[in-house]
């Protein structure tokens, strides 16, 4: 009998304490992908030159290309990918729903809508000022979904939350589309951004968002142990003495911080927040103290690779990474889920 890949790995990794090693390996993969991404493009730049551009910038054409175009782009991919994946993990635990992600629960759509609305009303400008609107939009959408989800006789049912999230996400996305149809200027500015894109990011934009994402990631890693407790279910968590109101609120705040930052930087890149947590759990198990760091690195890796693949396969520097994350992520996820389900576990 062929043992399913996911199960095998989960056992082995849990058994020999291979998780730190696995995390290191994944991190090395990320570094390799980042270097590859810096080197490749319309014009290939040797890694040695990339390195010199970073440590000893001399203003040459190649160094300018690395420092002004490629490095900001790949940094944006790393920041957005890790933020979306970690917020996806937290959402899935807090809502006790494997399909939850910031995308599905309207948080990305809320952030995107707020940014587009502000651009339309006040004109387009530099990226960093939109962050607070993205936070506001993400927070408002989260509150709205939470409020709608608690209607009905059973209070906070997960089904209620998912339905409310789908309604809010669809509604806000439709509003965003409607605005963009009537406002050609904003459309030109955000056309790629609304699909999720890291094209044309600047170092300044990265620097503006990075503190929030790093804070969110640090808080997310700290949450790990409490997420394991939450994931046992409301009653079990309570019997262990967990103050669920507090930990749920903290978790949602971290999600809004991470998803809001990621969306303001790179637009609502879909699929990362849904698929990365699943791939990680299928591979290393459900101990969230490990799922969180693996997802942070894995999410960054997925977005960097997706961006790289988009550029290489479609030959366009503008191809939105939000499209390729789904093109790469979906088949990989299906393969992993099938190989796991085939094991009859």
């Amino acid at each position: 009998m062929i043992r399913p890949y996911g199960m095998n790995t989960a056992r082995r990794m849990a058994n020999d304490g291979g998780r730190p090693l696995g995390l290191l390996l994944l991190f090395c993969l990320l570094v390799a992908a980042v270097l590859w991404s810096l080197a490749s493009g319309a014009r290939h730049i040797p890694l040695a030159t990339v390195w010199h551009a970073v440590v000893g910038f001399d203003g040459s054409r190649e160094h300018l290309l690395v420092m002004l175009i490629r490095l900001p782009r790949v940094l944006a991919a790393v920041l957005a990918g890790s933020a979306l994946a970690v917020s996806g993990v937290i959402m899935q635990v807090v809502t006790n729903n494997p399909l939850a992600s910031p995308g599905l629960l309207g948080i990305n759509a809320g952030a995107a809508f707020a940014v587009v609305l502000v651009m339309t009303l006040f004109g387009t400008g530099t990226g960093d000022v939109y962050m607070w609107y993205a936070f506001g939009g993400a927070g408002a959408a989260a509150l709205l979904v939470h409020g709608m989800g608690s209607f009905g006789p059973s209070g906070h049912s997960t089904i209620g939350l998912v339905i409310a999230g789908a309604i809010v996400a669809t509604f806000l996305t439709a509003l965003t589309s409607a605005i963009l149809i009537f406002d050609q200027n904003t459309l030109d500015a955000v056309r790629l951004w609304t699909a999720g894109s890291v094209t044309g990011r600047t170092m300044a934009q990265n620097a503006a968002v990075a503190p929030y994402i790093l804070t969110g990631l640090a808080a997310g890693l700290f949450l790990g142990r409490h997420l394991v407790t939450l994931s046992l279910g409301a009653e079990a968590a309570r019997s262990l003495g967990q103050n669920q109101a507090v930990w749920r609120s903290v978790s949602i705040a971290v999600v809004i911080l991470l998803a809001g930052s990621a969306v303001s930087l790179a637009g609502p890149i879909g699929f990362v927040g849904l698929v990365v947590p699943h791939i990680v759990r299928l591979t290393i198990g459900a101990d969230y103290r490990w799922v969180l760091p693996f997802s942070a690195v894995g999410g960054a890796l997925l977005v960097v690779v997706a961006d790289l693949a988009g550029r290489m396969i479609f030959g366009s520097q503008d191809f939105p990474v939000g499209v390729t994350t789904a093109l790469i992520g979906a088949p990989f996820f299906l393969w992993l889920a099938r190989s796991r389900a085939g094991g009859g576990s």
Partner: peptide
């Protein structure tokens, strides 16, 4: 319990309080 959680992971949760 969530899928993939090991016995040790679960037992350690008993120390939460």
């Amino acid at each position: 319990a969530p899928e993939g959680l090991t016995v040790r992971d679960l037992v350690q949760q008993g120390r939460y309080p």
